[in-house]
């Protein structure tokens, strides 16, 4: 037993190392004064960060990405609330099929989503812009939002809302006074996850943004130029740090929500 456990533990730790290898290397190169991304490291510098800070295109890309991510997160979460509530609270014919269809982007190759949307938008004569990216991002964020929100809604006792209604509240005020505060951690967690997905999404942004840069498309365009790469490493470091902070926040809210409902901590991942 002990032997087997040790072996598996060692393997699991090695696997974690494999998962984290790129993330560990990222700051090493971001602070490395050498212009070539290779070992051995040359020396410590923060030049790449200042270069990044001074880059105007990058700032436009950042502003675009933030706008897209915030819009996509809010819209996907709003639509997700509708779908999650419908699926956890009501029974109706065709529910499985409709939910399956809404969740489809989760398993559809992204290139197909992007290409088909692009073809239709071009065909309809729609000008490609940040708006068209938001359109696509809401679609691919929505399934994740629904997955998170459904666990939040389903861990909620149906009687709670009925009790509020029974005590004289209207359907809407019962939702506002009881359900909403209780699923709030799930909503925040959904917003954060959707924001993170959108911020990092490349393919849809690449094809649907027209000539507007977003962070991932800007990064992609710069990866071809070796002399830009140290700066991209610096940018990556910032983004990874940001992602980890957002995820930790999301995780915190998720656990707090579960704790409040008396649930166990592993719930909600699944």
């Amino acid at each position: 037993m002990k032997g087997q456990g040790r072996g598996l533990q060692a393997y699991a730790l090695l696997y974690l190392l494999f998962l984290y290898a790129p993330i560990i290397l990222l700051p090493l190169f971001a602070f490395n004064s050498g212009t070539i991304i290779a070992f051995p490291l040359q020396g410590f510098t923060t030049d790449w960060f200042s270069q990044m800070w001074a880059n105007a295109t990058l700032r436009t890309a950042l502003a675009n990405s933030l706008l897209i991510a915030v819009s996509a997160a809010v819209l996907a979460t709003c639509l997700g609330i509708f779908a999650a509530r419908a699926s956890t609270r009501f029974e109706f014919p065709g529910k499985g099929g409709m939910m399956g269809f809404i969740l489809l982007p989760m398993v559809l190759p992204e290139i197909i989503v992007a290409m088909s949307l692009l073809v239709v938008l071009l065909g309809a004569g729609v000008q490609l812009s940040i708006l068209t990216v938001i359109l696509g991002h809401v679609l691919i964020c929505m399934p994740y939002a629904i997955a998170i929100l459904s666990t939040a809604f389903s861990s909620l006792d149906k009687s709670l809302e009925e009790a509020a209604y029974d005590l004289g509240e209207t359907r809407w005020s019962a939702f506002r006074l009881v359900t909403l505060p209780l699923v709030m951690p799930g909503i925040i967690s959904s917003l954060l996850i959707s924001f993170t997905i959108s911020l990092d999404e490349f393919i849809i942004a690449f094809f649907l943004a027209g000539n507007q840069p977003t962070l991932p498309t800007y990064i992609f365009s710069q990866l071809r130029f070796p002399k830009q790469i140290p700066m991209i490493m610096a940018l990556g470091t910032v983004l990874v740090a940001l992602s980890i902070v957002l995820l930790a926040l999301g995780e915190y809210f998720r656990r707090r929500g579960n704790a409040r409902m008396g649930g166990n901590p592993t719930r909600g991942f699944l």
Partner: peptide
């Protein structure tokens, strides 16, 4: 009543997916 409320709720996300996903897929 249950089913009608369910449909009313699922309509916005479903229509969105129909517009942004189903229509393009049918087009290609």
């Amino acid at each position: 009543a249950q089913a009608r409320q369910g449909y009313a709720l699922i309509a916005p996300p479903f229509l969105y997916a129909a517009l942004v996903l189903a229509a393009p897929l049918l087009t290609i």
